[in-house]
């Protein structure tokens, strides 16, 4: 693979070098950094979409995670807006249910993509349901 990679890389690199040489600016390396960043970003995004296309349920999990982040953000912005943490236990309960549910979802997602040794996916889902129920109970208990 590598020689091919080198061969294919060099014209690109040449192009990059030539583009650098022609540019006259105070920071000659800034172009490279921003370009590397956008390259990395695009590569990860493509990898992500490929992964999600393979399994529908990952989309469900990811959308649920975004929702949890939004709810946590709304609660925090309310607290910041009134500048008062008055029922602090209530704020913590609301925040922890979002964070804990997020963590459990991530753990389920991880096991769906590449299951752990000795734990089947069904069992992972069963544990996820049990842990979520306990989390909900704790949250409702803590908000009193």
């Amino acid at each position: 693979m590598s020689p091919v990679g080198v061969v294919t890389m060099s014209p690109k690199r040449k192009k990059a070098v030539s583009s650098v040489q022609t540019r006259s600016g105070p920071f000659p390396w800034s172009g490279t950094i921003s370009r590397d960043f956008t390259d990395a970003f695009n590569v990860s995004l493509k990898a992500y979409w490929d992964q999600v296309k393979k399994d529908n349920r990952l989309k469900l999990i990811d959308i649920f995670c975004v929702f949890l982040v939004v709810v946590a953000f709304v609660q925090t912005s309310f607290m910041v807006l009134i500048r008062d943490t008055f029922p602090f236990n209530a704020f913590l309960a609301g925040f922890i249910v979002c964070v804990g549910q997020f963590v459990l979802l991530m753990s389920l997602r991880l096991q769906l993509v590449s299951p752990f040794d000795g734990i089947s996916k069904n069992r992972a889902f069963g544990e996820f349901v049990l842990a979520s129920l306990i989390l909900h109970f704790i949250s409702l208990h803590f908000i009193n």
């Binding site: 349920r57 989309k59 959308i63 929702f67």
Partner: peptide, 9 residues
């Protein structure tokens, strides 16, 4: 979002 994501069947 769930329903429109096309991941539901």
């Amino acid at each position: 979002a769930w329903m429109s994501s096309g991941a539901l069947n």
